[in-house]
Design a protein around this nucleic acid. Structure first.
Lengths: 244, 244
DNA sequence: TCAAAAGTGTTACGGATACACCCATGT
DNA sequence: ACATGGGTGTATCCGTAACACTTTTGA
């Protein structure tokens, strides 16, 4: 950041910003075969009563991550989650609070991506439930440029899943291979892989430990419960891996 | 000092930001077999006389991309380049100008990633050449957290190259397959692929058009000049592609 | 004629795909 | 006993890796 100006203008032309953090919180409902996004109904202008992403403005002494975490904790109670930064949207005019041509304060949004476990996620109803999960393919018109942000996050979700072990951050401690398969099916679509091939591939990678415990769900042969062995995974870290 | 009040908290606790844009500008020197990063010597505090990334603070009415572009144009003259957003660093205290505990203005940096053609890049010497290419493996201690940003950008460079056709944004209009190979070699390292296999794979993808023109460089059989056919590439867009 | 650079061909291996099949349980 | 879901095996295909070979030029 070298503000290379030699003039006096220096201060006057620099834009003043408030920085917002908006988080696309995903969860995967394998039963319902849906990907869900957490939305909140806005109680302030602008975009009053529109649905939008959970977000907040960054406070004094607070890091971006802290702010993202604060919003998350306000809206939802979870034990397991995965968070990472997504993209920063900062063009002038993206927030109606910036009066056109006024050179007032600008609003910049750093978006975050989060993945939580659907089954255990408890929404914290504020007032009369201005908070809800929406299927990603049935989103309403959102406030600001939030539709665009969700779209961006969705691409990231699929990418992350294919190349990194995020799934295990969000699955229970132990799970069956069918659970895992269902999870991937839901996110990546019907035709990503055959079950039996998925199975062999994953097991060959060697970081899924069979606990020996069997679980039976209705009819059918009982399934083994597996555990993600992060030690066994460690050496594979940042190697190009495909989880397809 | 921002007006502090424990009451109408809402307004008073929000941090005020200046937003900076820092760009990691890469070029690939295939002759010298080096990856280069463009650095500028700071002429202001903080970090006076340290080398750092070209950057600026965002002005009124200016988008982040505009700011990134403005800096680029100030430092370097190029025809071809590729630019994309990298990451946003915004923790409190990352800039010494934020007085500790003062709740003064915060400095947030949105970093960008750029790739330019080395051969045609002309550095715009300001004063006595406070601007230079540095080999990525021989960087000095940089201002702020810029070493970290470069590291992040370097990862992105290699990734981009493997999975997307950025190379062609930065190669001449026509080039030999050896040129292309040298380029990949330089970025991805000695052991990424055999030349002949690289060759067959790339040609099979079908978006490299042989111009028929031959060029000869010293001894050896003349090489065909190829052109990147963006129409032929279009259908492959956003399909998972490996350029290795 | 020989070295250097460009370009072609060939073989072997390993992973992915598409199945067919076997196993254990509930009803 | 049979439907249901879990789990195993196998034949085939195709991309990749390794490397030998041919072609065309300059010196």
């Amino acid at each position: 950041m070298s503000e290379s100006g030699t003039k006096q203008v220096k201060q006057s032309v620099l834009a003043d910003f408030k920085v917002g953090v908006d988080t696309v919180i995903f969860s995967v409902d394998t039963e319902g075969n849906r990907i869900l996004v957490l939305l909140v109904k806005r109680e302030d202008e602008p975009f009053l009563k529109y649905w939008g992403l959970p977000g907040t403005l960054v406070r004094n002494g607070e890091s971006l991550e802290d702010a993202a975490h604060r919003v998350l904790v306000e809206k939802i109670r979870v034990n397991n989650l995965y968070v990472e930064q997504l993209y920063t949207f900062g063009g002038p005019g993206r927030d109606p609070r910036e009066l056109p041509e006024s050179f007032g304060v600008r609003y910049l949004s750093v978006s975050y991506f989060a993945l939580v476990r659907f089954a255990e996620a408890q929404l914290i109803a504020e007032g009369m439930s201005g908070i809800a999960w929406y299927a990603i393919n049935k989103l309403p018109q959102l406030a600001f440029d939030h539709n665009q942000i969700v779209e961006y996050g969705y691409r990231r979700l699929r990418n992350k899943l294919e190349y990194s072990p995020v799934a295990f951050d969000v699955l229970p401690e132990v799970f069956t291979l069918s659970d895992l398969y269902q999870f991937y099916m839901t996110v990546l679509g019907e035709n990503f892989s055959d079950y039996s091939n998925f199975r062999t591939r994953l097991l060959k990678l060697g970081f899924l430990a069979d606990t020996g415990v069997k679980v039976t769900r209705g009819a059918g042969r009982p399934a083994s419960l597996y555990r993600f062995d992060s030690d066994a995974f460690a050496p594979l870290k940042d190697k190009p891996l495909v989880f397809i």
